[in-house]
């Protein structure tokens, strides 16, 4: 179920003095089973891009296709889009609203023609994925949890629907290191289970570890698009544009400059460890 953006442009507040073009003729295909990381400085159009991909904004020009069908056509079945494409926005915790965790997580299932048992099983599974004990939390108020826990609760609400395509906007910002790792491992599992993942993040180390492909936007245009090792190799080019290629890549560069013959595509922790151990003593 690929999502394709074909020469998509988007302008906010068109025809007013505040008109701002956020995206300029972006073409991008995300294929089934990919894990794509989207990066770029604040204001480069990342969030606009995913809202277009999820059908939450209509392009000013160009088209967005899901499975080859234009999602902005009048006859396109939007319910299908909502069920297939799950979106986790920035600070999803502010979307919690129900009186209990179970009701909140189940809200997205409300209009699906699933049986009660199937819905409850989906809610239980989603909460367990996010590291909660279903029985212990189901009747608690979602507002009685800490910030990071609320984040995980909100994401459970999106996963309960079992989308085929998961879009996330900075899901790990503000999570503590272990929650971050646990969440990224969960994403890896969902991805291995066949889910297509499109994730915006500034966390280059996380993307290096988990995403196969990196897309970088700059001022509303495609700046880089390719395999992670290739895109992050050009550390200087990224740095000039205010983008970090991650701490591992930085360490690789420091050692390379000091004469270590470590390939510049060394972007993952495990790779770096092997490179150093394999070349020691110099």
């Amino acid at each position: 179920m690929p999502i394709e953006l074909r020469e998509v442009s988007y302008t906010y507040a068109p025809g007013t003095p505040y008109a701002a073009q956020a995206l300029k003729k972006i073409s991008l295909i995300v294929r089934d089973g990919e894990f794509v990381g989207i990066m770029g400085r604040t204001g480069c159009g990342k969030s606009t891009l995913i809202q277009l991909a999820a059908g939450l904004l209509t392009p000013s020009a160009g088209q967005v296709f899901l499975d080859g069908e234009d999602i902005n056509e009048r006859h396109f079945d939007r319910n299908r889009l909502r069920q297939k494409v799950g979106v986790v926005f920035q600070f999803p915790e502010i979307q919690l609203f129900e009186t209990t965790v179970e009701k909140d997580t189940a809200f997205g299932l409300k209009y699906l023609d699933w049986s009660g048992e199937k819905k409850q099983a989906a809610v239980r599974r989603a909460l367990e994925w996010m590291g909660f004990d279903f029985e212990a939390v189901r009747n608690r108020s979602p507002f009685g949890f800490s910030g990071g826990e609320k984040r995980r609760l909100a994401i459970a609400g999106v996963l309960a629907v079992m989308p085929k395509f998961l879009i996330l906007d900075e899901p790990t910002a503000g999570l503590d290191p272990l929650s971050r790792e646990a969440f990224l491992e969960l994403l890896r599992k969902l991805h291995q289970g066949g889910m297509t993942v499109l994730m915006i993040s500034h966390d280059a180390d996380a993307l290096a570890e988990y995403a196969g492909r990196i897309v970088i936007l700059k001022e509303g245009m495609l700046f880089r698009d390719g395999p992670a090792a290739e895109v992050f190799s050009d550390q200087e080019g990224l740095k000039e544009n205010g983008i970090s290629a991650g701490q591992v890549r930085e360490m690789t560069e420091r050692l390379r400059r000091r004469g270590w013959e470590i390939p510049c595509g060394t972007i993952r922790y495990g790779q770096l460890l092997e490179e150093i151990a394999g070349r020691w003593p110099r």
């Binding site: 503590d176 290191p177 360490m251 922790y269 460890l273 150093i276 151990a277 020691w280």
Partner: peptide, 19 residues
């Protein structure tokens, strides 16, 4: 619930390799 900085992690993993 915290993770060590990259240099600390590498230091310990290298130690595990006898370095």
């Amino acid at each position: 619930g915290l993770t060590p900085p990259l240099p600390v992690r590498l230091y310990h993993d290298l130690r595990g390799r006898g370095i």
